[in-house]
């Protein structure tokens, strides 16, 4: 199949950047979307042009590295699918596809489709953990965890930290990412001692990084390739309210 691509090219953070058109004549419907870019890049290199820079690594939907907006949607048109697992059978011959980086104030562009998502690491560093130094653990069966809570914790913990939620949000908010970690750790008995301080510190870090506030548009949960449910944001708000209004 033949595809026309409009790809965001930007030399560095200070370059203005623009969309440039390319054509790939020998695409195949069994190719993954990133393999399409591989094919394009091989051609660009041999033609003496600079290949398109894009983040990718595991190519099986779990590392969270790939980060592009395809035809206006983070990770493209297929539900619950990262860009690396999106295949060309979802596009048609002759189609024009626009490819841009995840855009948000807190995700500056590094080059082409590569953005800096270091803010996510700093949010986790601010409190997204349970303090359990190596060696200090009781037997794993010492504290049973009711299955519904364990399952909800797992569902929230499935977040891959890709940032699609931020790219999809009109406010550039990372509330879904934040809520996912708050819910994961807050559901577990092991997460209780730090529950209040965690949410206060993480919300502060989120705001300091320049992410916007949540206005419940729900775009994040639609874009999320791991289908993190929107109610983790309700949980975040509930925990935050509890932590900031309860007298200790």
């Amino acid at each position: 199949m033949r595809l026309n691509l409009r790809i965001w090219r930007q030399d560095g953070p200070n370059d203005k950047g623009k969309l440039i058109g390319y054509r790939v004549d020998d695409a195949d419907e069994d190719m993954s979307f990133l393999e399409l870019l591989d094919v394009l890049n091989e051609k660009l290199i041999l033609d003496g042009d600079e290949p398109v820079a894009f983040d990718h690594d595991c190519r099986e939907g779990i590392c969270g590295a790939c980060s592009m907006v395809i035809n206006g949607q983070p990770h493209g048109p297929q539900k619950a699918t990262t860009t690396c697992q999106l295949h060309l059978r979802h596009f048609h011959d002759g189609e024009t596809i626009t490819i841009e980086p995840f855009r948000a104030g807190a995700f500056p562009v590094v080059r082409d489709l590569v953005v800096d998502r270091g803010a996510f690491d700093r949010i986790i560093a601010s409190g997204g953990y349970i303090s359990a130094p190596t060696g200090a653990a009781p037997d794993a069966h010492a504290v049973p965890v009711p299955k519904p809570q364990a399952d909800r914790a797992f569902t929230a913990a499935a977040c891959i930290g890709c940032g699609a939620c931020v790219a999809a949000c009109p406010n550039g908010s990372a509330s879904l990412f934040l809520g996912a970690k708050i819910t994961h750790l807050g559901e577990l008995p092991q997460g209780q001692p730090e529950r209040d301080s965690r949410v206060v510190r993480m919300v502060q870090a989120h705001d300091d990084e320049g992410f916007g506030g949540c206005t419940n548009t729900g775009e994040c949960a639609v874009a999320c390739p791991k289908e993190i449910p929107l109610d983790v944001i309700s949980q975040l708000n509930r925990d935050y309210l509890h932590a900031t209004t309860t007298r200790r």
Binding site: I130, A132, A137, H184
Partner: peptide, 10 residues
């Protein structure tokens, strides 16, 4: 396993 459970691995 003990260590990971203490860290909140679900």
């Amino acid at each position: 396993i003990d260590q990971c459970v203490a860290q909140g691995v679900p």
